[in-house]
Structures are given as C-alpha cells and as structure tokens.
Amino acid sequence: MRINTTQRRAERQYGDTQMNIKTLMASCKACQLLSTEELAAQLSLQPQSIRKRYCQTGAYYSLRPMKLPNGRLMWPADSIERLVEAE
C-alpha cells in the first residue's frame, strides 16, 4: 500500500489520537486519500473553489471528504472517476 506525503505527515502528527489516519484509510474504499490541494491540481481548479463549494453545500458536487482532527479535508483518491460518472 502506497501512502502519499500528506498522509504520512498526518499520521506522524496525529498518530496517537483516537481517530488517526489509519482509521480513516481503512474506511476509504481505495485506501488512498488526497488533500484539497492535490484534488484541485488534478481538476485544474483553485483549492479555494473546492473549499467554498464544500462550505456551502457540505460536498463538492457528489464528493464528501473526511475531516482530520486538525480540520484538513481528505478526499477519496477515486474522486475524478466519481465526478466523471456523475455527469
């Protein structure tokens, strides 16, 4: 299983918390998560566009992120495929 840099950083910082990154990854079907910045780069958007839509509706179109204890949003790695399927 490949873990990206953001996930490693979150695991180091919050490894002792009750809701750690391993728990979040276990609940994710693809076992990979993307930060808002990574998702925005893949969609050719500004990260703030994704955050704004999430704040207004609770999701970015049909995507719902997991929220880390520090407030960061982690999106499923298959987000782009799910957005394409929704169209």
Rank of each mutant, 00 (worst) to 15 (best):
69 P>S: 14
30 A>K: 12
36 T>M: 01
39 L>E: 01
50 I>D: 02
10 A>M: 09
11 E>R: 09
29 K>T: 14
51 R>K: 10
11 E>S: 08
31 C>Q: 12
67 K>I: 15
15 G>C: 04
52 K>C: 04
14 Y>A: 04
63 L>E: 06
43 L>D: 02
71 G>F: 01
24 L>Y: 07
26 A>K: 13
29 K>Y: 09
30 A>T: 15
67 K>C: 09
38 E>N: 01
56 Q>V: 10
68 L>F: 09
60 Y>E: 05
26 A>E: 12
33 L>G: 02
30 A>M: 06
20 N>E: 03
44 S>K: 01
13 Q>G: 04
29 K>A: 14
71 G>M: 07
47 P>C: 09
35 S>G: 11
68 L>I: 00
58 G>N: 05
36 T>N: 12
16 D>V: 06
40 A>I: 08
64 R>Y: 03
32 Q>A: 10
70 N>D: 15
39 L>Y: 01
62 S>R: 08
57 T>L: 07
49 S>Q: 14
25 M>H: 00
41 A>C: 01
38 E>G: 02
20 N>S: 13
49 S>E: 14
10 A>R: 09
36 T>R: 01
10 A>T: 05
17 T>K: 07
29 K>D: 13
63 L>M: 09
65 P>L: 04
68 L>T: 12
32 Q>V: 11
44 S>A: 05
10 A>Y: 03
34 L>C: 08
49 S>C: 04
25 M>R: 14
38 E>A: 13
69 P>I: 15
20 N>W: 04
15 G>I: 03
39 L>F: 04
59 A>L: 00
54 Y>V: 15
9 R>E: 09
37 E>D: 13
65 P>K: 02
71 G>A: 06
27 S>Q: 09
51 R>V: 06
12 R>K: 08
66 M>W: 00
70 N>F: 07
54 Y>G: 00
40 A>Q: 06
54 Y>H: 11
34 L>V: 09
25 M>V: 13
33 L>W: 01
22 K>T: 11
69 P>A: 12
62 S>T: 14
26 A>V: 10
49 S>D: 05
16 D>T: 12
19 M>V: 15
54 Y>T: 14
26 A>P: 02
64 R>G: 07
36 T>K: 01
63 L>T: 12
18 Q>G: 10
9 R>T: 14
58 G>H: 02
48 Q>T: 09
12 R>C: 08
19 M>Y: 12
23 T>M: 07
69 P>Q: 13
55 C>G: 02
18 Q>I: 14
26 A>N: 14
52 K>D: 10
45 L>W: 10
70 N>V: 06
68 L>H: 07
36 T>A: 05
31 C>I: 00
49 S>W: 00
25 M>I: 14
65 P>T: 08
26 A>I: 07
26 A>M: 09
61 Y>E: 12
52 K>S: 07
25 M>N: 08
37 E>S: 10
42 Q>E: 13
